[in-house]
Write a protein that binds this DNA or RNA. Structure first.
Length: 489
RNA sequence: GGCGCGUUCGUCUAGCGGCCUAGGACGCCGCCCUCUCAAGGCGGAGAUCACGGGUUCAAAUCCCGUACGCGCCA
């Protein structure tokens, strides 16, 4: 593959919903490719669907990309660039340019007005299906006389503009991932480039803009491969030099169907809200349909830039594996320095009322290898701060019997006399307590853990006691010792 | 229906004619470590490389069919 001197890639979402995983992966690959080549990554909003486009979707897409850490060099809200040669980055603000090119194609006879009604087109389709022909526009408005056109116009008929496809020959799509893909022109139909509302269709606007924005590489989802020959014909008719194309394999859901907005947890923002760490998601996404020859899993950002290549892209679709994502998230959280971890988990800590609690950082460090999600941080820590414990069934059982309860009472008395409540002296005292009574350590450790935390799982026992502090430990032990039978929740 | 794309362990993948008795990762199972849970270490099960033909001394790798899946067109 040649390395062009000026690489410009783009991500061009339609603001008709949240940014989903597949879109984020496409954006990511465009960004990585641009970075790898020292190029520019453009964000363009394709809001020509007048009915379904919303401002909320635009915001959601921008938020998603920002959160994921996929910054765009040009696009909405890059204010200093808004006056640049490629602005604006919303297609509805570029309407004039599409209309101008449409007029040009019309004048040159490469496009023509089509007056067919929805009913006529439906009938055409049904007939084709009956005759087992491919359902396509039959070209009936291709060569209308001027007179006929005037007649339609006079009757108030609205026209769309169709592009005149060559009747013969083939169009080759040179694809960086799939090689040369051939399409027969005769099978391509005269597609609509301007709707009756004089708003361009996707295939048209996309070509005009990619050319105007000097996009060098169009990296997009596989579902656009079939559109590409039509677009290539448009490039030729307009006298534009086409960009290089790379069609990415799709992302499938766990059920093997295309991962879509309908699939549930496919929105990037949902992952944010569930507590995923953005760099982990981004790393995981990079691995969906791309790999290095070493099958490396974890990448620093710089490494991703350096190692990313189109050659490493997979032709076959990839299934999204939530289990692997979760593992990767844990990997990232484990490596995070404590202050950064807390800062990242802040929204979740605030929600749990733990943000700003004294000793939070110290306590958080005790559980650090257990967090898989940022939302796990408050979940695993709240017993340190809560006044009343959420007892698990297992923990209740451990302190329910009279024997352990009596021991806990004695332990409370002994620990209250300890000169220092640091981990070391605590360990010595408690082990001594066991030895003096000829008890196995587990006979004391387990009820003790349960009594002070309400759980059977947690950090190292003595570290945990030290972090809780004498007051809480003694109070919880006395309470456990005094409560007969199963503890009240 | 036509056209296009794809098919290596459950999943992500390495592989681009001999290094493959197919490597790594997630998940799963077992052992070790150990005050619990994790983390970590060690090990294991798991892929007749979709199927059938070729080409070749040699094919997961090249060619042709078939099947299945997916996409686009409507």
């Amino acid at each position: 593959m040649t390395t062009p001197s000026k690489v410009r890639t783009r991500f061009a979402p339609s603001p008709t919903g949240f940014l989903h995983i597949g879109g984020a992966r496409t954006a990511l690959f465009n960004w990585l490719f641009a970075r790898h080549h020292g190029g520019v990554f453009v964000l363009r909003i394709e809001d020509t669907d007048e009915v379904r486009s919303t401002h909320e979707s635009v915001d959601a897409i921008l938020d998603s990309l920002r959160w994921l850490g996929i910054p765009w060099d040009e696009g909405p809200e890059t204010l200093e660039k808004d006056r640049g040669p490629y602005a604006p980055y919303f297609q509805m603000k570029r309407i004039d340019s599409y209309r101008a090119f449409a007029r040009k194609l019309l004048q040159e006879g490469r496009a023509y007005p089509c007056y067919c009604t929805k009913e006529e087109l439906d009938a055409m389709r049904r007939l084709a299906q009956l005759e087992k022909r491919p359902p396509r526009y039959d070209g009936r408005c291709r060569d209308l006389t001027d007179e006929k056109r005037r007649e339609f116009e006079a009757a108030g008929k609205k026209a769309v503009l169709r592009f005149r496809m060559p009747d013969e020959g083939t169009t080759a799509v040179p694809d960086l991932i799939r090689g040369n893909v051939q399409f027969e022109n005769a099978l391509l139909q005269d597609f609509v480039i301007m709707k009756a509302s004089e708003v361009p269709t996707y295939n048209f606007a996309c070509v005009i803009d990619d050319h105007a924005m000097e996009i060098s590489h169009v990296i997009r989802g596989d579902e656009h491969l079939s559109n590409t020959p039509s677009q290539l014909q448009l490039y030729a008719a307009l006298g534009f030099e086409p960009p290089a194309f790379a069609h990415l394999s799709m992302i499938l859901g766990p059920d093997g169907a295309k991962l879509s907005k309908r699939h549930g947890a496919t929105s990037v923002l949902e992952y944010r809200d569930q507590g995923y760490y953005p760099k982990a998601l981004r790393n995981y996404l990079a691995l969906l349909g791309w790999a290095t020859s070493e099958s490396q899993e974890l990448f620093e950002e710089e490494e991703l830039f350096r190692k990313f290549s189109i050659e490493g892209c997979q032709k076959s679709p990839a299934s999204f594996d939530p289990a692997k994502l979760l593992w990767m998230d844990g990997e990232y959280l484990r490596k995070l320095p404590a202050p950064e971890l807390l800062a990242a988990a802040r929204p979740f800590l605030e929600k749990a009322g733990l943000w700003g609690k004294p000793g939070l950082e110290q306590v958080a460090a005790l559980e650090r290898e257990k967090y898989k999600l940022l939302s796990d941080v408050p979940k695993l820590l709240d017993f340190f701060f809560k006044d009343s414990l959420d007892w698990t069934d297992k923990a209740q059982k451990l302190v329910a019997a009279d024997g352990p309860r009596a021991l806990l009472g004695e332990l409370a008395a002994e620990l209250s006399r300890l000169p220092s409540f640091a981990a070391k002296p605590l360990e010595e005292a408690i082990r001594g307590f066991c030895a003096a009574r000829s008890l196995k350590t587990s006979q004391v450790f387990h009820p003790l853990r349960a009594a002070v935390s309400g759980r059977t799982e947690g950090p190292s026992l003595f570290e945990m006691l030290a972090a809780l502090g004498r007051e809480k430990v003694i109070a919880r032990l006395r309470q456990a010792a005094a409560t007969p039978g199963p503890l009240a929740r």
